[in-house]
């Protein structure tokens, strides 16, 4: 596990920065809930928004925005948490092979007595673990601050953990895209571009499909829809939200490792 440990150590400083950002972002978001809960007009305001806007900010029919699940879904689980986890995960996935091949730092590792498969798997595992850490930091912050502001009167902390797990699987899916493209082409740029395009495209599709009936059939292609269609703070987790992203991530990871094993490496 030398390559695993090394990558964790390499990313430690950056990871701490992300963790601090996550704590501040989540804590300040959750801490604002009591203020919103006590102002009655927000829900009326939201009802006046177009359907696609409501979908993009994570509002769901039948769940008031000022309720704990409504607020957390809109402010945390539809926006802040997945955005941080996705951006962090895409960066890690793209650098695991693509970035390290492009800058040449992988050259002495692949010529060492380690198989390419092992090297790629260890670097992928380290990236996955770091993404998990960031998600857990966000989740624990939400639970701790939520408890302090009384958000768990009528909402179980378990639901928050389940929803955070779904954020992680969404993050893994995008990390796996970046990893697979990077491992297949040995460059960081295309890996980031592909994963970001899927993230942004999926997000827009999810929002637009809510107001454009012509697009409704296509929303099934959006990983954001899989995750956000049912508010996991109220409903039980679905295969679409938890299982499918993991399966796709697994397939992408296998594809990435296999192509990395087979191809010529392009060091500077």
């Amino acid at each position: 596990m030398i390559a695993f440990q090394r990558l964790i150590a390499d990313r430690r400083r950056g990871g701490i920065g992300w963790g601090v950002g996550m704590v501040f972002g989540v804590a300040s978001t959750v801490a604002l809930w009591p203020a919103l809960r006590d102002s009655g007009e927000i829900d009326e305001l939201v009802q006046d928004l177009p359907a696609s806007m409501r979908a993009l900010i994570g509002v769901q029919e039948g769940i008031p925005l000022v309720s704990a699940p409504g607020y957390l879904q809109a402010r945390l689980f539809s926006t802040l948490l997945p955005v941080l986890v996705l951006v962090y995960g895409i960066g890690l996935g793209a650098r695991a092979i693509g970035g390290a091949e492009e800058d040449g730092t992988l050259e002495l590792a692949v010529t060492a007595p380690v198989t390419r498969r092992r090297l790629a798997l260890e670097r992928l595992a380290a990236s996955v673990a770091l993404t998990l850490c960031l998600t857990v930091v966000g989740m624990l912050t939400a639970v701790a601050v939520g408890a302090a502001v009384g958000i768990f009167d009528g909402l179980s902390a378990t639901r928050v953990c389940v929803a955070a797990s779904a954020v992680w699987t969404l993050g893994l899916l995008h990390l796996a895209v970046a990893f697979a493209v990077g491992a297949a082409v040995g460059r960081r740029g295309p890996a980031v571009t592909a994963a970001s395009a899927i993230a942004v495209g999926g997000y827009m599709l999810h929002g637009l499909a809510a107001s454009a009936p012509a697009l409704r059939g296509l929303r099934v292609l959006s990983p954001w829809w899989w995750f956000l269609d049912r508010n996991l703070l109220v409903h039980d987790p679905t295969f679409l939200a938890m299982g499918l992203p993991l399966l796709i991530a697994l397939a992408l990871a296998i594809g990435g490792v296999v192509s990395f094993e087979r191809r010529d490496l392009r060091f500077p």
């Binding site: 040449g104 050259e107 010529t111």
Partner: peptide
Amino acid sequence: RACVGFLPADLHI
């Protein structure tokens, strides 16, 4: 490869 010491033309660390 365990028996080979290798120095690339451009070393990147």
